[in-house]
């Protein structure tokens, strides 16, 4: 009994600290919004673009901290400059898109690291690259909550329009939507949420936040609305759990969150009711036994036919 209550005390300990409850809630919120966006990103094959955005915001964040501006502003600006840079280089060269994206985002990331390393006192490299949700300041919490709340509200209103524009842009036009404008909206939301996720998992692991929950949910359902719901649940719970457990493991929040997301993905990959590996094997077995039964029946018919012939 003594041991039991000691374990409970230990498990509840993180909630005794305000910074921990804050970290858990903020992580869950960011995880949910990123998961929402991931459903669109993985269906369009734009995962690399998400990674590029996450790395490109780093110099903006560094400069904003240096100048005492809200970090979201700096991140947003450099993200948009990077996106414009990608389309500019793409138009002027014959290079393929992935090469251009790789070129531009690494350049931005390098500039960001350079700025941070020259001014080590103002910003901590580690908190940008790896995230540091446990030490998040109150102003940053406010910024993250505002970004996430606005993004969620817009997504809640526009998710069907976005789905239509991504699924079939000609049809989107025929019902009076402007697919190009919706795509711009999506990328603005994506860069905003990338900025929010910098705090929880850091620039390097943001890509997992905007890919893995959607990829997992995709294996679990054939309906887009359900996919969004599942992805958000996965994103929020893994993020909250990661933040919670990082209390005991001292700091590796981003790594924990992404590890949990991967574990959920692996479980779906094996056990998903329709698209999982086990289901595929079951279906293959059912099919082959059906074929076997069919040929047995055929043989039986042939045999009885032969018997009839002989009796006749």
């Amino acid at each position: 009994m003594m041991l039991f209550s000691a374990v409970i005390d230990l498990l509840l300990e993180p909630f005794a600290y305000q910074y921990m409850t804050k970290a858990i809630w903020v992580s869950a919120l960011v995880g949910a919004v990123c998961a929402f966006l991931s459903c669109y990103l993985i269906l369009k094959g734009w995962a690399l673009m998400g990674d590029a955005l996450a790395h490109s915001v780093v110099p903006g964040v560094a400069l904003a901290y240096l100048m005492g501006l809200p970090y979201a502003l700096g991140a947003f600006t450099s993200g948009i400059i990077a996106a414009l840079g990608i389309s500019f280089v793409r138009r002027l060269t014959m290079l393929r898109e992935d090469a251009v994206i790789g070129l531009v985002f690494t350049t931005f990331f390098a500039i960001g690291l350079l700025i941070v390393s020259i001014n080590p006192t103002s910003v901590n490299v580690q908190s940008i690259v790896l995230g540091n949700i446990l030490a998040i300041s109150d102003e940053d919490v406010v910024q993250v909550i505002i970004i996430a709340a606005i993004s969620l509200a817009i997504l809640g209103l526009k998710w069907k329009d976005l789905m239509l524009a991504f699924f079939d842009d000609s049809h989107a036009r025929s019902v009076g939507l402007n697919p190009w404008r919706l795509r711009v909206l999506f990328f603005v939301l994506l860069s905003a949420c990338t900025v929010a996720a910098l705090q929880t998992v850091g620039a390097v692991l943001v890509i997992a936040m905007v890919v893995t929950p959607g990829a997992t949910a995709y294996l679990l359902t054939d309906r887009f609305g359900v996919m969004i719901g599942l992805a958000m649940i996965i994103g929020a719970t893994t993020s909250a759990l990661g933040a919670y457990l990082s209390f005991f493991m001292d700091g590796a929040t981003g790594g924990l969150i992404v590890v949990f997301q991967t574990l959920v993905f692996l479980a779906a990959f094996v056990f998903a009711p329709k698209h999982g590996r086990l289901a595929a094997r079951r279906a293959a077995r059912a099919f082959s036994s059906e074929v076997d039964a069919g040929s047995r029946e055929e043989n039986a018919v042939k045999r009885s036919g032969l018997e009839e012939e002989t009796t006749a």
Partner: peptide
Amino acid sequence: EDVDWNFPVLVEDVVMMGRYG
């Protein structure tokens, strides 16, 4: 060829898209 057949939508969802306008 222009349709992403792996998109997670059911037959009735696609037809319902016709009603969005």
